Simulated scan of single mutants.
Amino acid sequence: MQLGNLERSVMEALWEHPGGMFAHDLAPLLPSGPAVTTVLTVLTRLSNKGMVSRERVGRAHLYRATAGKDAFVAEAMRAALDEAGDVAAAVQRFVGTVSPEVASALRAALGERDGSAR
């Protein structure tokens, strides 16, 4: 799922504050200091995308990310592969660019997956 710059900044802040945030506390943390009404619009869009939940607290809403950053990154990677014309070539090219640590993490994840399928 693609996010705009402000949406991404909002999500980064929410991932750093897993207990949730109010729009008026979130606005000053964002680049260019958008108005609270702008932040509320972004939060509504993110809620419609299923990325943010809101809970009424008094007269305001407390916003939380519905999933962690790792889940978002995994979904973005899956979506990118879905768009690749030649998935095998895309994966091969990706693997050729990763650090040894990432390669090790990929091997471990694939090993776990293969082990759980038996």
Rank of each mutant, 00 (worst) to 15 (best):
F94S: 10
S99K: 02
H17G: 01
G19N: 10
A90S: 13
M77I: 13
L30S: 10
A79L: 13
T97D: 05
V42Y: 04
R45C: 01
R113M: 09
V10S: 02
T97H: 07
G115A: 13
E16I: 01
A88V: 11
A79Q: 09
A79P: 00
A88C: 03
V98R: 02
F72S: 03
N5W: 02
P100M: 02
L6R: 15
R118Y: 00
L43R: 08
A60P: 00
V95S: 01
G115Q: 07
A67K: 11
A13K: 15
N48T: 03
H17Y: 01
A80F: 09
K69I: 07
D86K: 15
S116I: 09
S104W: 06
P28K: 11
G20F: 04
R59S: 09
V102A: 07
A90I: 12
V57H: 08
E12R: 08
S104T: 10
V36M: 05
E55I: 10
R59Q: 06
R118H: 04
D114F: 13
E7W: 05
T66F: 02
M1H: 11
M1Q: 10
R107K: 06
R8N: 13
R54E: 15
A76N: 05
R54K: 15
E12L: 05
A117L: 15
E112L: 11
A71D: 08
A67S: 13
